[in-house]
Simulated assay, not measured.
Amino acid sequence: MMTTGLEAISFYIPRVYVGLDALAERQGIDPEKFSKGIGQEKIALPGHDEDIVTMAAEAAQLIIDKYGADGIDTVLFATESGIDQSKAAAVYLHRLLKLSPNCRCVELKQACYSATAALQMACSYVARKPDRKVLVIASDVARYDRDSSGEATQGAGAVAMLVSATPKVAEIGAISGLFTEDIMDFWRPNNRRTPLFDGKASTLRYLNALVEAWRDYQSNGGLSFEDFSHFCYHIPFSRMGEKANSHLAKTNGVPVDAQKVLPGLIYNRQVGNCYTGALYLSLASLLDNAEDDLGGSNVGLFSYGSGATGEFFDARILPGYRDHLFTQQQRRMLEERESVSYDNYAALWEEIDLSKGAPEQARGRFRLAGVEDEKRIYVDRNA
């Protein structure tokens, strides 16, 4: 069978954040409700001149700079923070990255799950055409009503993955376990900027989808629980990853081992929820922060999108993978961020009239300069 998987994986996080201690003070509650209760510390905040396209471009440019764009003829852009009801964000991204015009570009949506659909499609495509490569993007801004129960689970970021028939980081397994049910645990009608949700129901359905997807994975001939050195889960908040890890262990009748999940939670605690990118930020966190060399080991991955679709699949980490990571750049990106006050956070949360131009707040190469005649204007500062 043809080997397909990740040749590279990278991410981008905006330069400012608000600490959850500021939200706790605003709400008059103990900060440990956030730091221990949901396991979160910071919320990444995009500037008014940043959105899913600029963040995606920053994440992908790291890969393009190192590996080039040769062979990329498909861009699959997963998001639930769409900027247009018709035109795919992938098309804007395609121009910013200066990719070949002989390229297909589409946008995928199913809550937080769609990046996994994109990854599986990409692997199938490069297995059929091993001389081609696919750029998979997961980019989102998680935004909830202020002073709501979901406010502490906001965040923003983008993850880029280069999928090819010559993977250097991880081989994606051919077996998946799938589960879908029509439920209303989280949704956002077209007339709303922020979602509607039932937090308790969503947590319960997430765990149910995990078990059902795992059982389907097993019935399809997947690896046994003991074959996995680590697990990565969709992480709307890091405590959810711990709950999922415990639930899956108990389902399999084995002792809970927190070390199988903790390295994959480090970045998410500092960033918050980035929806479609949350699972893959967890994978990047595991690859960057695992103390032992993971080369040759198996990692289990569970993807969940409310509404709801879940998928469990496996990845084999390849020997020498550390030579193809962006660990130092990504750690520096997180370390060099700036904290803002609650008032400044509130100002960034509010929408502004982009027809008058956007203030220069992005730290990166790409920015949204404004909107002219209902057209979004993106610029490359290096052009």
Rank of each mutant, 00 (worst) to 15 (best):
L334G: 02
V299N: 08
G277S: 15
S339C: 09
N344Y: 14
L334H: 02
G320P: 05
N289I: 02
A290S: 11
S341T: 08
L279A: 13
R322D: 05
L348V: 13
A315F: 14
G295W: 11
D292V: 12
A284M: 08
N344H: 15
E311M: 07
S285N: 06
Q328E: 14
G310M: 05
G307L: 10
L283M: 13
E311C: 06
V299K: 01
F326D: 12
Y280E: 12
N298T: 05
V299I: 13
V299P: 02
V340Y: 05
C274V: 15
N298S: 13
Y280C: 08
Q328W: 08
Q330K: 00
I317M: 02
Q330T: 11
L301G: 05
S303Y: 13
Y304K: 02
L294W: 08
F313N: 10
I317E: 10
M333G: 03
G320C: 14
G277D: 15
T309R: 03
Q329T: 07
A284W: 13
A308K: 01
D314K: 05
S339D: 12
G295V: 03
D288S: 06
N298Q: 13
L294Y: 06
S339T: 04
F313A: 02
G320W: 10
G307Q: 02
G307S: 06
Y342H: 10
S285E: 07
D343M: 00
P319H: 13
A308L: 09
A308T: 03
Y345M: 11
M333K: 03
H324N: 12
A315M: 13
Y280K: 06
G300Q: 08
Q328K: 11
D323N: 09
F326N: 07
T327L: 01
G307R: 00
D343Y: 02
S282Q: 03
A290I: 06
L279C: 12
S303N: 10
A308S: 10
S285C: 01
A308E: 02
L283D: 07
E338A: 11
R316E: 14
C274T: 14
S297M: 09
S282W: 04
Y304W: 11
G307H: 08
R331G: 05
N344S: 15
G295I: 01
S285D: 03
R337V: 07
N298P: 00
Y275D: 07
F312V: 15
S297Y: 09
V340A: 08
E335T: 07
A347H: 15
L294A: 06
S282I: 08
D292A: 14
Y304D: 04
D292K: 02
L294E: 03
L283Q: 06
F312T: 12
A290P: 00
S282H: 03
T327F: 08
A284P: 03
